[in-house]
Each structure stands twice: as structure tokens, then as C-alpha cells.
Design a protein around this nucleic acid. Structure first.
Lengths: 226, 226
DNA sequence: TAATAAAGTTTATAAATTATAAAAAACCAT
DNA sequence: ATGGTTTTTTATAATTTATAAACTTTATTA
């Protein structure tokens, strides 16, 4: 679940935002002044910050600037009453990811939040292309080939594969995989995991019955090596 | 947000560039040797590469040459301590887009980066005429034809088509398309997107029920290929 | 080596996603 | 307002994917 920090002094707006975001299944923290806000931003590692421009003690620009110059890349959406273009430019220059002027519709804000989070997710250290033996996988295109032949994989197969690549050499238990790839809201059996491993072996291994990449670690899980 | 890959062995320069670029709202990846640099260039698909000439393991010329001969068109700006004209020429010959000699001012570098990205963007972004099979689309005139017959498309269809062309080969989710083409202020459902895809297929594909250009990527979105 | 537990595999069914057509709503120029 | 167009929603069919059950094979250990 994504954690969002709201730094906003107007109590009504703060409450309204919090309620709406929680309804949309975000984990919400709130602060009402700039100084405390900055502290939370630094210590609670939120996934996104909604940052009001006019704040007591320390304003939004300053917070944004300080976070960025401390090397903090958390996505920031600025909230402001001022609609002037100049403000927008300044906000974005100082490192905000988006800028919304009050009054805004909650739905608009929600869709901007989603967009900013999605952008971050696609940029962050994601692998685009990965090679396993004569198999080449392009995650951005969701396309893969074994030699000259195309391989077709479902989204879940790509996700599982990506997880293994990101945890190369580690023993990954079935339950960890279920938590990380499936999430906490569905509960397939651990046998389901076996099914996917089988699929990946069939599609990727040279000899699926003698796997060289997706190794079984008896009574512990699987380990991907390459 | 544009992703920039810095390949530079001097840790001070690397850090300085990273900070400055991040302040300017770029997403920054760094590598400190040639081999890893080449790997990142291939796998992380940056929008631009700042490439030092003198690098351990594999030098800048080689990286540039290898990327280009592999068909990679990512913009490259070479950084070098050698000011000699010969170097400059060699760098540009090997496919670099620009060349900056150290010491350089950060402002100069930033403006060169902007210029290179802008040049690329105008090439990729402003399509006038585009051909898909026997279909020719003129975006400036908003006119299209399939063989000798005219095709009539609405503005939204043109916009969606253009987005797909600018994201050729990539998997585009319905939500990304909604955000990018419709914007944040209207909220059609993802099913609306399906309808537009159907329209485009009907008008553009040879056999709309066996699409060759607008491919469905189940549970992920669509991918345009040409 | 027999007993037991874990993993592999196949298959049937359920669930989710997408395609399509048609109707309804919104928009626009007259 | 009106007719025509575009956009969006809705309903249903078609397709694809996810999952569990049942069974087989392999590995562990007493």
C-alpha cells in the first residue's frame, strides 16, 4: 500500500484529502506546518508528498528545494491557490513532479497521483532488456524470444520473472513470491507457484526437466541463477 | 521526466552532474566504468547519455561505436578533457550528438542537453506524414487514405494514433493512454479505450479481426508495431 | 529401503479481461 | 432548437488467464 504524506495547513482541506485518499486505499500521514512536514518527509519515507505552497514556518518551495538538494527523489505534487504560470514553473524547476491549483477536483488529483506514481515506477531502475542463455526478454515491449522464435508469456509470468531477476541468486520462498507478486489481497496456494515455475522452465530453460536457471531448493523455494 | 545516464569515472564530477541534473528535474542513473556503462545504456533505455571519453575497462569511443552499430539511437553527449579538434571530429563521426570539453560550465552543459533532447523530440514528436501498410496519414492536414480511398478519423483518433506512433513497440496501458490523451480532468472508462482501438483497427488494419499493428497485450494494454 | 513429505504435471473449471455492437449522451455548428 | 457528428457507456459474447484438484514423480529421512 502506498504511503502519502499531506503537508497542508488548512484543516478542512487536510481532512478532506485524507479521507478521500484513504478511501482510495492509500496510507495517509498528515502534517500542518512546514517544519514538521519536512521532518516527516525525511523520516517516514512516504511514496508521494502532497505539498501546499503557503505553509506556516517554512513554505512549500523551501521544503521541496531542501528535499531535492538532500538527494531525496520522492515524488511531490504541489498544491496552490495561486494559478499563475510563473509559480508553476518555479515549482517544477525546484523539483516538484506536478502542480495542482486550488480549487481542484478530487478525481483530478487522484488521477494525477496515479500518473506520478506510475511514472516513477516505470523509471526506477527497471530493467528493460534481460538475457538468459539464448532467451532475450524485453520487459518494456513485453516481448521475448528464444533464438529466432517468439515466446509468449502472460503478465504474471513477466512479473514473476522480473522478481526473480531482481533477486538473482537468492532463495525465494513460495510465500514471499505470493506476497510480492500477487499481493496481500489474494491467496492462491503454493502449488500455483509451482505451476508458474513450470511454465517459465518450459519457455526459458534449454532442457526444462533439468533446469539450469530456475533451481528448486527443496523445502525452501526456488533460486534463479544466470 | 527524462532519464539521463552518466558514464563517468571521476566521482566528484559524477556527483556534481547528478545533483545538478536532478535539480533540473532529470532522472539520473550513473555508472563509473565503461563495461557497466554500456550495459546500463542497453538495458535501462535512457533518454540521453553523458559519456566520458576516458573510462576504465572500455572507453567512450568504443561504447558509442558499439551502441550505434547495435542500432541504438539514444542521444549521446561526449565529455572530454582533450580539447583537440581531432577528438571532436572522431567523437561526432562515431555517432555522438554533441561534444563538450572539460572544464565546462554546468549551464552550458544543461543548455546543450536541452538542445539535443529538443532536436530529438522534434524529429520523433512532430510527425507530419506517417505510413502504416497502405495507409497514409497526414497529421498536419488531418487527412488520411487507404490506397485511393479516403479515411475519416476524428481528432481523438488522430491523437491516439499519434501517441501510439510516438510509443511504437511499447506496451501502453489503457490508463496511461487516458492520462496522456484525455488528460486529468475527464474520466472515461478503460472500456472507452477499447472502442477507439476497435475504430483504429477497422480503419487501418488490413484484417481488423487479426490485427497486425494494434496488438492486444492481455491484462497490460496495447502495443503498436509497424 | 520404506514411509513420508515435497515438488512436478496435467487438466478442468472459474475468474478476469477484451471485443464488439448498439444505444445514449455530449458536443457543435448552424 | 435541430441535425449531424463525436464521444462515452452499456451489455453481451468471446477469449485468455488464473487457480485448484488430483495425481505422479522425486527427494528426504528414519
Amino acid at each position: 500500500m502506498k504511503k502519502i504524506l499531506i503537508i497542508e495547513d488548512d484543516q478542512a482541506i487536510r481532512k478532506g484529502l485524507k479521507d478521500n485518499l484513504e478511501l482510495d486505499n492509500y496510507d495517509v500521514l498528515t502534517e500542518s506546518d512546514g517544519k514538521e512536514g519536512l521532518k516527516s518527509a525525511e523520516n517516514k519515507s512516504p511514496d508521494l508528498i502532497l505539498l501546499d505552497l503557503n505553509l506556516p514556518v517554512k513554505n512549500g518551495y523551501e521544503i521541496c528545494k531542501e528535499l531535492r538538494s538532500a538527494g531525496n527523489n520522492v515524488p511531490i505534487i504541489m498544491l496552490s491557490a495561486r494559478a499563475e504560470e510563473a509559480d508553476k514553473v518555479l515549482g517544477l524547476e525546484l523539483g516538484a513532479d506536478d502542480y495542482v491549483t486550488k480549487p481542484f477536483s478530487i478525481r483530478e488529483l487522484l488521477s494525477r497521483i496515479k500518473a506520478v506514481l506510475r511514472r516513477k515506477a516505470t523509471i526506477e531502475d527497471v530493467i528493460d532488456i534481460y538475457t538468459i542463455g539464448d532467451v532475450e526478454i524485453n520487459f518494456r515491449k513485453m516481448e521475448a524470444s528464444k533464438g529466432k522464435k517468439k515466446i509468449y508469456m502472460s503478465l504474471k509470468e513477466y512479473e514473476i520473472l522480473k522478481f526473480f531477476i531482481n533477486h538473482k541468486e537468492e532463495v525465494v520462498s513460495r510465500n514471499l513470491l505470493l506476497d510480492e507478486v500477487w499481493g496481500y489481497e489474494v491467496f492462491p496456494t503454493t502449488r500455483t507457484v509451482d505451476n508458474y515455475i513450470m511454465m517459465l522452465r518450459k519457455k526459458i530453460e534449454k532442457n526444462p526437466s533439468v533446469p539450469k536457471h530456475f533451481l528448486t531448493i527443496h523445502s525452501a523455494g526456488y533460486r534463479f541463477v544466470n
